[in-house]
Design a protein around this nucleic acid. Sequence first.
DNA 1: ATCATAATCTGAACACTGTTCAATTGAACA
DNA 2: TGTTCAATTGAACAGTGTTCAGATTATGAT
Lengths: 230, 230
Amino acid sequence: MGTKERQERDRSRIRESILAAARELFITDGYRTVSMRKIAERIEYSPAAIYSYFPGKDDIFFALAEEGFRLLAEQAQATTRDITDPLDRLRRGLWAFYEFSKAHPQYFELMFLDRSVPSLSQDFQRFEFFQDTRLRAEGDIGACIDRGEFSKSLVPAAALHVLWVGMLGAASIGLAHRLAPGEDPDTLAHDVLESLLAGFTTNIIRSTFVASECPFHTSTETAVEANQNA
Amino acid sequence: MGTKERQERDRSRIRESILAAARELFITDGYRTVSMRKIAERIEYSPAAIYSYFPGKDDIFFALAEEGFRLLAEQAQATTRDITDPLDRLRRGLWAFYEFSKAHPQYFELMFLDRSVPSLSQDFQRFEFFQDTRLRAEGDIGACIDRGEFSKSLVPAAALHVLWVGMLGAASIGLAHRLAPGEDPDTLAHDVLESLLAGFTTNIIRSTFVASECPFHTSTETAVEANQNA
DNA sequence: ATCATAATCTGAACACTGTTCAATTGAACA
DNA sequence: TGTTCAATTGAACAGTGTTCAGATTATGAT
């Protein structure tokens, strides 16, 4: 009999309806107001029923975050597919990341900004999204170094982290509307990206510091000056 | 009689005890777990009593955030007081900002990262902390431009925003522990800062974009190249 | 068709949360 | 002493995530 199979189909169908209800609620109102009872009402089940499909509320958002990572990966790859120039691909890929924060703010907040879903903070490194696009981007940075567009002493993995941090900062500032009056988030994001890329043309020395110690030289011999003299 | 005065003294004394209880709780456990009932228990009052001293929970955290801004301003000024070189002062000021995120993570999260306290997101621009230190930092950037350390076309206010976004991103990544294995948050923060400052030596053109449009040129004529040729 | 079994779903509860409000207490003033 | 007024409280309201015994339903075997 194919009853076991059908049972499993039913299970995953209801699981998907829970996800769909949660998705609708959190895309419109943000995930902060999404409650188990509201999801239950939407799928016409009791709140307790959800717990036989998901261990808890966090796991629903974890699944939603996975969707977000797929979405972001798709969009990033779609916009960089036809680009051959490494620097250009890097630029547009990072810009796609920023655009994603505007197109899907709720997803973005859930994926990168929020810290109230503990499972996300822990396991989000393990999303294969990172392994794929990260390696590609690091490859592009490596190509830029080889071409002489970036400094020879640049470490691709570290450089990508720097770029990613910058774009994340710009996106989060834009989403939180924490801008000075007259400041345009797009302009800000652009300037951050361009400043970082421009900075990569000069030598950046990576060294490890003793925690809580200022890693900079005195005024007469700043790092930038030291690098320029090198 | 000075009973009115004593009554007011009592009021502000209790108000401060509420703040102290809230502060202790949120510094150790993070503000997410701080509840009105826990505060009430600590000050040996009923939860309802707090509402005659604060309009609601958000306002308590608003007051705590104000403390945080004072603390940050103090620390930033203390570390930059004796520095005369503009670039060095800028650097160390920004680094003090990052250090603050490590020294007082709970304050930092409340002040800059969290969005669940609506009053903060709205009014945080109005903290005089910004007016003071922002103008000073913009002055330093202006001095760096005059000295030829930064590009002549750099807009101080915009440049500061870029730096601030970068450091905020680095700090938030560090706090959220969203680093690749082997990555050191201090190193990352350092690299972000140095990359941005290095980028400021080259020309960054600020232009406004049509929303959702990629503001970059094609691969044959990228912004960096265009700037370098200018 | 009947029964046992297993999966599924629900109602009610638990332990929380922020917040409100009528009622009570307590201190100051006439 | 009686009045007034602010301070304080207990109880409740409307939420939250989560658990669990029990009812319901569907399945498989006799």
